[in-house]
């Protein structure tokens, strides 16, 4: 209980800091802490394989990519691109409405729960067997999807010649 409160509040505060931070690199660092917090929540829920995967794929892979992107595009004058107050108000109203809706639904879902929680979450072995039997199709689709992403990203990020001034691109 205390563990959940600590980890959940840390995760929530880091997520809030991602939104409120004006320096994009600091946002990236707060996002890192949010993702680590979510991974700790998975360990707390007993889903150890998913927690370790979150750490290795999200924190060790995706976040490194995001921070590289931030550093390669963060010129000094663009670090602090300001949003106008009107956009903030619209955003806060929308996000607040969505949060109220989702929280109400969650509270109603949580009442009258009669089934006991899963005693032991399926481990790595069962996940592996599941991926190769029941969920084989999503697994294969994901493999092809990753191949497409690899080729696409490599093509998009290839070194191109800069177009000359005044020449229309064809």
């Amino acid at each position: 209980m205390i563990l959940f409160t600590a980890i959940a509040s840390a995760t929530g505060l880091s997520a809030l800091a991602v939104v409120l931070s004006r320096n994009i690199v600091r946002s990236a660092v707060w996002l890192l802490f949010t993702l680590v917090g979510v991974s700790l929540l998975y360990f707390l829920l007993g889903a150890e394989f998913v927690g370790a995967t979150q750490l290795i794929v999200y924190v060790g892979g995706t976040m490194v990519l995001v921070v590289f992107g931030v550093m390669l595009t963060a010129q000094q004058q663009f670090l602090k691109i300001r949003t106008r107050p009107q956009e903030w108000i619209v955003g806060i109203v929308l996000a607040g409405a969505l949060f109220t809706l989702l929280a109400t639904v969650s509270l109603r879902l949580g009442e009258g729960r009669t089934t006991a929680p899963t005693e032991s979450m399926p481990g790595t072995g069962q996940l592996g067997v599941g991926f190769l039997t029941t969920y084989l199709l999503p697994f294969e689709i994901i493999s092809v999807h990753l191949l497409v992403v690899l080729i696409g990203a490599a093509y998009l990020a290839r070194a191109k010649r800069r177009p000359r001034e005044g020449v229309a691109s064809d």
Binding site: G12, G91, F99
Partner: peptide
């Protein structure tokens, strides 16, 4: 289940913002 769903809702709202 409720606290986890509420945390998920909060993260979703932060992401949307």
């Amino acid at each position: 289940l409720t606290p986890y769903l509420c945390l998920g809702a909060f993260l979703f709202a932060c992401g949307l913002l």
